[in-house]
C-alpha cells in the first residue's frame, strides 16, 4: 500500500490520542458524576473516530459503519441508565459530588 494512508493514519492517530487524553483527564480530575459521564463520552468519540478511520484505510467502510452503529446504540443505552443512576443518587444524597457519596464506604 502507498505511503499516504500511513501518513493519514499517523496524523489522525495523533489527534485521536490527544482527544483521548482530554476525556481521560476529565474523568480523572472531576468529582462531578455528570462531568465524568461527559469525559467518558469524549473517550467514546475518540474510539468511534478510530474505528471509522480503520474502515476507511482498509476499504472496509461497511463493516466499520455497522460497528459504529452498534457502538452508538450501546452508548445511548448506557447514557440513559447512568443518567438515571445519577438522578437516583441525587435524590437520596442531594449531591452528585463523589467526595460526599460515602454511603457504601467500608
Amino acid at each position: 500500500m502507498s505511503v499516504e494512508p500511513l501518513q493519514l493514519f499517523w496524523y489522525f492517530g495523533i489527534f485521536i490520542i490527544l482527544i483521548s487524553i482530554c476525556g481521560a483527564y476529565c474523568i480523572l480530575a472531576t468529582f462531578n458524576l455528570i462531568r465524568a459521564l461527559i469525559g467518558f463520552e469524549i473517550l467514546v468519540k475518540a474510539a468511534t473516530l478510530l474505528i471509522i478511520l480503520a474502515g476507511y484505510l482498509t476499504g472496509n467502510q461497511a463493516l466499520a459503519q455497522a460497528l459504529v452503529i452498534t457502538l452508538i446504540v450501546i452508548e445511548v443505552v448506557m447514557m440513559v441508565v447512568s443518567g438515571g443512576i445519577v438522578l437516583w443518587l441525587y435524590r437520596y444524597n442531594q449531591t452528585i459530588d463523589t467526595r460526599k457519596l460515602s454511603n457504601l464506604k467500608g
Partner: peptide, 23 residues
Amino acid sequence: RLGSPLAAVFELSVCSGLISVIF
C-alpha cells in the same frame, strides 16, 4: 468525509441530539 455517511447520520442525530437532551 471518510466515506461513512450512514454512521455519520447516526452520530449527528443520536449523539449530538439525543444524548444532549438526556444530559
